[in-house]
Design a protein around this nucleic acid. Structure first.
Lengths: 231, 231
DNA sequence: TTGAGTTACTGATCTGGATCAGTTTGATTT
DNA sequence: AAATCAAACTGATCCAGATCAGTAACTCAA
């Protein structure tokens, strides 16, 4: 009876945004007419928590972090891969402002969709609305896992988790160049950068990973998985 | 420039569930016909994370905790006051099972609504769907705040936060009888029960609160607020 | 190629809160 | 009223990870 349930702190949504597929041709045109596309460079802030939300956003390409901060600490809620919606809370009249901040990890392309148009579609196309609910749900469940991970796992488990997650869900191979600084990696795992650096060293010494600068290589996936589950 | 943003770890949704108001008479009857009401005693498990979800739930009366656990640790996602929906994720086909567990803090009445019926309403009544989206949003935003609180505030801030929250949102007065054990209060604030007990002692010594067994009385709300913001 | 700034890394120290090992209190049963 | 058991509380100790105070390496600009 020692089968602990496993929660992934993985902060990357796997949900494929299908909601636009449910629109009619006319509706698609309506969206096109009422949206603009904007480019962001690596490190640029895409939206600030608390600022007026006149649009829903869609990450067409790139990679972004969704986070909240209080001036001292930053909490990364999730990593957002391309083809995902952002700022959905603003469709509720209760939230006139963005509920979180978003920053581009790498150069990214954002589609801003007028909130009025989006709301109109929600009410006029129930299947679309249903898809949006699905997105919200996937989102919640993922946040629950991450919440558990950051509050109840300890450092090695968290870091192993994040590394596996990045490899599996973003880069889709064992070797990848990580576009994040050590500090960003630390903030993602809810640790100090010093701690992360020390831990990476241990992982390397134990031949779990190979690191050269920003190049990461998973050498022992099996053991890594085990650490992420038990640690 | 030292105005830190304040996140409440308050785990109690203030959202009033309005979604049923949007239904027509016929739809209301449909819901009534396809739902059952069940009583739970204090401490009873209302649903288990991972079990099949054939229904959405509505807490008619009582008070419950929504949580996830891995066999060792428990994370309380939120406290659920009466008149709130539960287990919404199961309306998504991706989630056939409950995404969290629920336990009654006090004797509670639960309405189980057939999932098929609920889904049907979602697709047939867009205003209803919109209300459900609003509920999801309120939920997410609240969890974000709690997430931040439990990961970045320290013990005194967290406990002050929870106490204020219970007083404000559940009991709606400064003096109340808390139906939770010290251990449950601890788990709610992400601390060990020993730590919570010690902290309560400090609060009492500083005349911030009065405690006698399960009776709590907030004596210095102002200072309490301050601790919850800075600590 | 020098210097200025940022990021990576290392070592030494500190500490918040957990853990462990009790005692006391209170509720419930017999 | 004695016995039992869980919850409340206390004190002593420990440790994971933060923090501080550096050095080293790696940009990038002039």
């Amino acid at each position: 009876m020692n089968n602990k349930t496993y929660f992934s702190g993985c902060s990357i949504s796997m949900h494929q945004c299908r909601c636009f597929d449910t629109l009619t041709e006319n509706e698609k045109k309506l969206v096109e007419k009422n949206s603009v596309s904007i480019s962001y460079k690596k490190g640029e802030v895409i939206c600030k928590r608390g600022s007026f939300a006149s649009h829903v956003m869609y990450l067409e390409s790139g990679l972004a972090k969704v986070y909240i901060e209080d001036g001292v600490n930053t909490l990364v809620l999730k990593i957002l891969p391309e083809k995902n919606l952002l700022g959905l809370a603003s469709v509720s009249d209760d939230f006139k402002t963005f509920e979180y901040s978003v920053m581009a990890y790498i150069d990214s392309e954002i589609l801003q969709i007028d909130i009025g148009t989006f709301k109109k579609l929600l009410v006029q196309n129930p299947v679309f609305a249903k898809e949006v609910i699905d997105i919200q749900n996937a989102n919640s469940v993922q946040i629950y896992g991450r919440f558990f991970c950051l509050t109840h796992k300890q450092s090695f488990g968290r870091l192993a988790d994040i590394l596996l997650c990045l490899s599996d869900r973003i880069f889709k191979k064992d070797e990848f160049e990580l576009p994040l600084s050590r500090k960003e990696l630390a903030e993602l795992s809810g640790l100090s950068s010093e701690t992360v650096i020390r831990m990476l060293k241990v992982f390397r010494q134990d031949s779990l990973i190979g690191i050269e600068g920003k190049m990461f290589k998973l050498l022992d996936r099996e053991k890594m998985k085990q650490i992420s589950e038990t640690g």
